[in-house]
Design a protein around this nucleic acid. Structure first.
Lengths: 150, 150
DNA sequence: TATATTCTTGACTAAATCCATCAGGAATAT
DNA sequence: ATATTCCTGATGGATTTAGTCAAGAATATA
């Protein structure tokens, strides 16, 4: 599994756009976002390019142009952002193909599949809105009911 | 966050030792484990060295020597193994120090902390025994009650 | 229309990290 | 003694990461 600076920058930058949207700013320039979030601007250029291709952001060129979210902030999941810019979020050694020990599954294969499920469940159920609102434990997982004990 | 071949080899190799133990084999040689699990032997040497220092494995030298688990297999958690050999399993950009945006916390900081908690909870509640027994959903998480709906 | 502005694309690079290999030494069983 | 096995540290090639840079295309505005 891989979660690099690139993916973290991506999440931070998209969160920035979501916050701008809350403040009624529609388009933000790369240079603005880069400065606010301490991200190298030319690097953010690359990252936003991927996010636009993944239809998470939309862009217009020229003066007053920039980037904005392509969907409401409760409809964009953190996992989407990461998948758009990261190379490989799979934990299995064999990319899920089950050939991790000489053509067959290694003894840890199913464990890493479960781990993948866990990570994906977490990342795909957290929206930009959830993160901005600092909501914790607000997501009701499949087959589970949350009961406060403290 | 980082989960590399090294960490995956480590988990596989320790699972191998746990399975050997079940078959009443006490000590296994590096070369044996390496061959069974398709892991380069000199690399596994490095890995086992770290695991011994972390007191997950114990070793004896000489003929009939080798490695074995230092504890029962239900008392060794997968997360321990990974922590012993991987460089950095922290997802925050600032190693948790809260200096990810010019001295203060970036807007994604708390999210990555939650993500860390999620991953650690998963990895630290799965023992070698759990994985070998293919148990799924057997772990009751804090503040949660599992209720089958299907 | 001219111009400044902003995204768009692709090539490029230094540094870091990963994934090992290898050699020589130390301990131990027989 | 000797063979066996772990122990340690140095080394190195390949890959990936984390950016930089330059030239071009689209757009708003005067």
């Amino acid at each position: 599994m891989n979660l690099t600076t690139k993916g973290k920058y991506a999440v931070t930058a998209v969160l920035d756009l979501a916050i701008q949207e809350q403040a009624d700013v529609s388009y933000s320039k790369i240079s603005e976002v880069a400065q606010r979030q301490s991200i190298p601007a030319p690097y953010l250029e690359q990252i936003f390019s991927s996010l636009r291709k993944a239809e998470i952001l939309s862009a217009t060129r020229g003066p007053k142009g920039g980037f904005k979210l392509s969907r409401p902030k409760d409809k964009i999941m953190i996992g989407e952002i990461i998948n758009a810019v990261e190379r490989n979020m799979d934990a299995t050694q064999c990319s899920g193909e089950g050939i991790c020990n000489g053509g067959s599954k290694c003894i840890a294969h199913n464990f890493w599949m479960d781990f993948n499920d866990n990570v994906n469940e977490f990342l795909m159920t957290k929206s930009l809105d959830d993160v901005i609102s600092q909501r914790r434990g607000s997501v009701q997982l499949k087959n589970e009911v949350l009961i406060a004990t403290g």
